[in-house]
């Protein structure tokens, strides 16, 4: 458009870029500071063994078969897989005894899948032990040395419903601003230190995911995002999906959610970097203080 053809609405424009960039700071401090609690009804199911009477109503209501109740009455056993959970609250609503309650927790990312399993009343010894504390600490230390607290991630959608994409792209919005943490979503796997993978890994995306992984230079991390990325989520059981990122790649961190809120993703990325402690242990969350303290890079 030449100078003489300026559209009429431009001539008396009040547009000043500076007006638009000034304004209140909208960036939430988390994970450098405390998290804003999620608004609205809480959604993370928590189970109390004392109150459970083994009615099995939760298992029947769950749309992803995340719950398994064996036996009836007080002696029954209860198993909940947060890797399959889509945080729909259906189980909480049908539980007649109040044994299932919803909590607002979102820092649920883990480095060991077994930590996502809530298990009550099972015979001793039937639960595989999760990674020993000493090994966890050593791994975290190594990762910190390798990446120095900063990370370049390539996002790969391996067949998600795009709900997870909404939240991953939100990380770049001013509200979450992950670049302030030294974390970058980069355009090519060649520039990346790791992959952030969403979706249940469809048969049709398998090859592209494998190639993207191979194109990422060593050393590299893989973060599996969402119920889909962990277990296939709502699509588990379909012959057109492989049922989670681990069916193709070695996964370092698992971030539950459907989708995980942006803060949950930030927590997961920091967990991968060894900058926060994992809170969830064998399905149990510590009571009291909600946010894990950040560690220096």
């Amino acid at each position: 458009m030449s100078e003489t053809e300026v559209p009429p609405e431009t001539r008396h424009s009040s547009y000043r870029p500076a007006d638009r960039v000034r304004g209140p700071i909208v960036t939430h401090p988390f994970p450098l500071g405390p998290a804003r609690p999620p608004a609205g009804p809480a959604r993370t199911p928590a189970h109390s063994a004392q109150r459970c009477e083994g009615t099995g109503a939760c298992a029947l209501a769950c749309p992803t078969q995340a719950i398994d109740v064996k036996g009836k009455g007080r002696g029954s056993s209860f198993r909940l897989d947060l890797g399959r959970c889509v945080f729909c609250r259906a189980c909480v609503e049908v539980c007649p005894t109040g044994a299932l309650q919803a909590r607002p927790d979102f820092e649920l990312a883990v480095t060991d899948l077994r930590d996502l399993i809530v298990m009550h009343g099972s015979p001793r010894g039937s639960v595989a032990p999760s990674v020993p504390e000493r090994m966890r600490a050593e791994t975290q230390e190594r990762v910190r040395r390798l990446f120095g607290g900063s990370l370049a991630l390539r996002e790969v959608d391996a067949g998600s419903c795009n709900g997870c994409e909404v939240e991953v792209s939100a990380l770049a919005w001013p509200n979450y601003d992950l670049e302030r943490l030294g974390i970058h979503l980069v355009a090519s796997p060649r520039h990346a230190d790791g992959l952030l993978v969403t979706g249940p890994v469809t048969v049709n995306m398998r090859l592209a995911l494998e190639k993207t992984f191979r194109a990422t230079p060593e050393p590299k991390l893989v973060i599996a995002v969402g119920a889909c990325g962990i277990s296939g989520g709502p699509f588990r059981g379909s012959p057109e999906v492989l049922g989670g990122v681990a069916s193709v790649l070695p996964v370092d961190v698992w971030v539950p959610g459907c989708p995980p809120r942006p803060e949950a993703l930030l927590y997961g990325i920091w967990l991968a970097l060894g900058r926060v402690e994992q809170r969830l242990r064998r399905g149990e969350l510590p009571d009291g203080e909600r946010t894990a303290p950040a560690r220096k890079a």
Binding site: F235, S238, V241
Partner: peptide, 29 residues
């Protein structure tokens, strides 16, 4: 077709109430 998950087939035989989750996951946005 890269994100084809066979969703329509997954619905078949299910309880209608549990089908809501798949409907929400056709396009999460």
């Amino acid at each position: 077709g890269y994100t084809h998950k066979g969703t329509e087939r997954l619905w078949q035989g299910r309880d209608p109430q549990k089908g809501v989750l798949l409907a929400e996951s056709i396009s999460g946005d």
